[in-house]
Amino acid sequence: MNFKEKQIERKIPPQESARMVETIYGCKWSLTVYQLLANGINRPGEMVRTVDGLSTKVLNQCLKKNTEFGILKKTVYHELPPRVEYQVTEFGNKFLAVLEQIEALQEDLNNLSR
């Protein structure tokens, strides 16, 4: 009998990145936050004032998740009154590019179903 050596192992899906995408899409405000940052609005108070229905509590939860994933960077300025700003990190820019590709894929799927 001729036994071939196995050349390819079972591919396992990326656990952490899949969870990250799921978490971000699960937070209904993350995409809005990215849009605000792209428009130069990077302070939480201004974000809440700019978007109807966005509360400070929910925004802070959303910003915390994004900061923990490394998508956003929080900068605290030690001045009175206190000032906090958020920026997209280098990793965050890569992540946002992936989200754009997912949105393009969704557009393609929508066009196929018509």
Rank of each mutant, 00 (worst) to 15 (best):
L99E: 14
K73C: 00
N2I: 11
F91N: 05
R19L: 13
G53I: 00
A38I: 00
P81L: 01
C27H: 10
P13W: 00
I71N: 07
Q15Y: 10
L31T: 10
S17E: 14
F91H: 07
E5V: 12
E100H: 06
F95S: 06
S55G: 14
T50K: 15
I71P: 10
I71C: 08
K74L: 06
Y86C: 01
T89K: 00
E100P: 00
Q35K: 10
E79G: 07
K57M: 02
N110D: 15
V21A: 11
L109V: 13
G40K: 02
I102E: 12
L36D: 01
D108H: 10
P44G: 03
Q61N: 15
N39L: 02
G53Y: 04
V33T: 06
G92P: 09
A104R: 13
C27Y: 09
V84R: 06
N111K: 14
V33W: 07
V21Q: 04
L31R: 12
P44C: 04
N110Q: 13
P14Y: 03
G53V: 03
I12L: 14
G92D: 08
N111S: 03
P14Q: 10
V33Y: 08
S30V: 09
G53N: 03
E103G: 02
L80Q: 11
A18K: 04
R43K: 05
S17K: 11
L96K: 14
T32P: 07
E68A: 11
L80D: 13
E85Y: 01
I8H: 08
Y86T: 02
E100M: 04
T50F: 01
E79A: 01
T23L: 09
Q15N: 10
K64H: 14
T50S: 15
L72W: 03
L105I: 05
Y77G: 00
T32C: 04
K6F: 07
I24Q: 05
N66F: 01
E68I: 04
C62F: 03
E103V: 04
N111Y: 03
L109K: 05
L99S: 03
E16L: 15
K74C: 12
A97L: 07
C27I: 07
K57N: 05
R49N: 15
S30E: 10
P82T: 00
I24L: 14
C62Q: 07
Q61F: 08
K6S: 11
A18R: 06
P13D: 02
L105K: 11
E22G: 05
N66P: 08
L59I: 11
N66L: 15
K64M: 08
L112Y: 14
N110C: 02
Q7R: 13
N110I: 07
I12G: 02
R83V: 05
A38W: 00
A18C: 03
N60H: 12
T89S: 08
K28V: 12
G45D: 11
R83Y: 04
N111P: 00
I8P: 00
I24Y: 04
L31I: 09
P81S: 02
T56W: 02
E68F: 08
I102F: 14
W29P: 09
N111W: 02
K4F: 11
Y86H: 04
Q35E: 15
T56F: 05
E100W: 00
P82F: 01
K94I: 03
N110L: 13
L109E: 10
L72K: 01
F95D: 07
Q106M: 05
N66C: 12
N60W: 08
N66T: 06
K28A: 08
C62P: 10
D108N: 11
